Simulated scan of single mutants.
Amino acid sequence: MGGLLGPEVLVSYLLRAVVMLIAIPFHEAAHALVSWKLGDPTAKNAGRLSLDPRRHFDLMGGICMIFAGVGWARPVGIRPDRFKNPKVGMAISAAAGPISNLLLAYLSMIVYKLLAVWFGLGLPTLLYRLLYYMISMNVSLAVFNLLPVPPFDGSRIALLFLPQKYYFKAMQYERQIMIVVLIAAVFGVLNYPLSIVGNAVWQVLDLATAFVA
């Protein structure tokens, strides 16, 4: 029990919780903002164009985000029929969430590198860990949500390349698919492919912030 509830572990969970309260609202608000700009105010009218975590929080999704590094929030309501081009509108609004997380990861990496240059080895450990989680958890959230199966954001993007009838047939089973994906994630089945993509994204962000050092 001491190892499970030791100070270091508790601090890690606390830092993850802080990141979760930033990353998920940015993700969901990005969906709401882009869908509104594309002509559908459904999410905006529902109060989802907000960085207040209470507007987006899902208990189980939040717990998974803290303890597993990936999670989810309450779905943002979007009406494709209000877009000029429903398929394109859905893809763009879906992509906004993962892109917002990648932007947060990118900005966090810039801040970390700037602080490392200024403070060197004197950078406070707690701040280092917070920035590390800001990068790693946002990258994980973006990659996880880009899975090309319903109900993840990647499925809306995949709609651009799939016949619509197959997409909507898959949508009928999105709850079952979600359960299967979560079970696979819990048992580590997705660890290898997600880690490969996540590491590749991390390297791209590192290269994109090379100007700082």
Rank of each mutant, 00 (worst) to 15 (best):
V204N: 05
Y132L: 14
L121H: 02
I92E: 05
I179L: 15
V149C: 02
G71F: 05
L194D: 06
P150C: 03
G154Q: 07
K113R: 15
A142W: 05
Y112R: 07
L159I: 09
P124E: 06
I179N: 11
R156G: 08
A200L: 07
P98S: 04
I157L: 13
R79C: 05
Y128I: 03
R82H: 10
F83S: 03
K113P: 13
N191S: 14
V88A: 07
V111W: 01
A184W: 01
L107Q: 06
R79P: 01
Q164M: 02
F144P: 05
P193T: 05
M90G: 10
F161H: 12
F144V: 00
V204C: 06
Y192C: 00
R175C: 01
Q164D: 14
R74M: 14
V181H: 01
L141W: 01
N101G: 06
M109D: 00
I177K: 00
F187G: 06
L130Y: 11
G198K: 12
G97F: 10
M171Y: 03
G89N: 06
V197G: 02
L146Q: 08
N191L: 11
P86N: 09
P151C: 15
P150Q: 03
V189C: 04
G198A: 09
N101P: 08
S140T: 03
L205T: 05
L194G: 11
L207H: 10
L102I: 13
Y133R: 00
L127F: 06
L127T: 11
K113I: 09
R74I: 15
Y167S: 13
K84T: 15
A185N: 08
P124R: 13
Y167N: 09
P75Y: 13
F152W: 06
L205H: 03
V197L: 13
S136K: 08
A95N: 00
A95I: 00
L107A: 13
N199V: 04
N191C: 01
G71E: 09
M178A: 15
F187A: 06
A200V: 03
V143P: 01
A185I: 04
S108W: 04
F187W: 06
Y173I: 02
A73K: 03
L182E: 02
L114K: 10
W118N: 12
S136N: 08
G122R: 09
M109R: 07
G122S: 11
M171T: 10
I99A: 13
K169R: 15
V197P: 00
E174G: 01
M109A: 02
P163K: 10
Y112K: 09
R79F: 07
L194I: 15
V117R: 12
P151S: 11
R129L: 14
P80T: 07
I179T: 05
L102F: 03
Y112Q: 13
Q176S: 12
V204Y: 07
F119S: 02
L162R: 04
M134K: 02
W72E: 08
F168I: 01
I92M: 12
D153V: 14
A94V: 04
Y173T: 10
P75T: 14
P151V: 12
K84D: 11
P150R: 01
A142N: 05
A94D: 12
R175F: 07
P86H: 04
Y167P: 08
G89L: 13
P124A: 06
P193S: 01
Y132G: 01
R129M: 11
Y133F: 15
L147T: 04
V117Q: 09
Y112A: 11
V88Q: 08
S93M: 11
